[in-house]
């Protein structure tokens, strides 16, 4: 196994994901547009007047929400990251790939590269749309870079969870019900839509152990407050994400080994 071979495999596999996406133009458009249209524009406009600016500590609801929508996009892409491998497992394509002389990890790596690239692009689109609606990033372009890095780090763990599920479940029905079970509570029991201070006590407690809250609390000040408020939060998010990713990658690797051998 040489590096050239590994690169060739990963490239060929990544190319497959890109080609698939290009064949599903409608679905691509929908996935890309859905978070900003539904959450950022509709939800943001809807709650503009209902939201209390004092509690939000933000100039308006949409700028408060932008950070949450960015992280929600990372969440959804990450949790859906294993779906294609699930179908590959079910229709025998995975076995075909595993019967070739590839390093077992190249399938996983190709999936990561693809999911991360899509997520990165979506984050940029969301921030651009928010800009059009008047949300000005307090930390400027370097802030965007930090947001991308945080998003990628969170995405690594989430995609690992998704792939672990894909390799472990008996049927894709189980997979999708577990995804549904995971994703909405992760959003509502976090600071994505309202700040923790506006939550009832028990919800605050739950949201505090949700890694999503910590990620949002690092992204949001980068958008609405500035470096001074953001830096300690960003540091905290890195620590939490290091632990989160380590746990998820360990579990994912175990599930993968059990399924592939």
């Amino acid at each position: 196994m040489t590096f050239q071979h590994y690169r060739q495999e990963v490239l060929a596999l990544t190319m497959r994901w890109v080609r698939r996406l290009s064949r599903e133009k409608f679905s691509m458009l929908f996935t890309l547009v859905q978070p900003m249209l539904f959450w950022l524009i509709f939800f943001g406009s809807l709650f503009q007047r209902a939201a209390n600016i004092q509690i939000l500590e933000a100039p308006n609801y949409m700028s408060f929400l932008a950070g949450g929508v960015v992280v929600m996009t990372v969440l959804n892409n990450g949790l859906a990251g294993g779906v294609d491998l699930l179908f590959d497992k079910e229709n025998g394509f995975l076995e075909r790939m595993m019967s070739t002389p590839i390093h077992r990890s190249s399938v996983i790596l190709s999936r990561y590269l693809f999911v991360m690239a899509i997520t990165g692009m979506q984050i940029l689109v969301i921030l651009s749309i928010a800009f059009i609606f008047g949300v000005r990033l307090e930390t400027g372009l370097p802030g965007i870079a930090v947001i991308l890095v945080i998003g990628m780090l969170f995405g690594v763990g989430l995609t690992a969870i998704s792939m672990a599920l894909a390799f472990s479940v008996k049927s894709h029905g189980d997979f999708f019900s577990m995804l549904g079970f995971l994703s909405l509570p992760m959003i509502f029991l976090s600071s994505a839509l309202v700040p923790l201070s506006a939550m009832p006590g028990w919800m605050q407690a739950v949201a505090m152990v949700n890694p999503m809250t910590w990620v949002i609390d690092a992204v949001r000040p980068l958008i609405i407050t500035g470096w001074n408020a953001a830096l300690p939060r960003v540091g905290m998010a890195f620590v939490i994400l290091a632990i989160f990713d380590a746990v998820c990658l360990y579990g994912g690797a175990k599930a993968f080994r059990r399924a592939i051998g």
Binding site: Q8, A12, L13, M15, R20, N91, T100, I102
Partner: peptide
């Protein structure tokens, strides 16, 4: 029928060419 519905026949073979180095 382990085929990828969204790939062409040629793309299947190109992919495998990559996997067999």
């Amino acid at each position: 029928r382990a085929v990828d519905r969204f790939l062409t026949g040629r793309e299947h073979l190109e992919l495998l060419g990559g996997l067999y180095h």
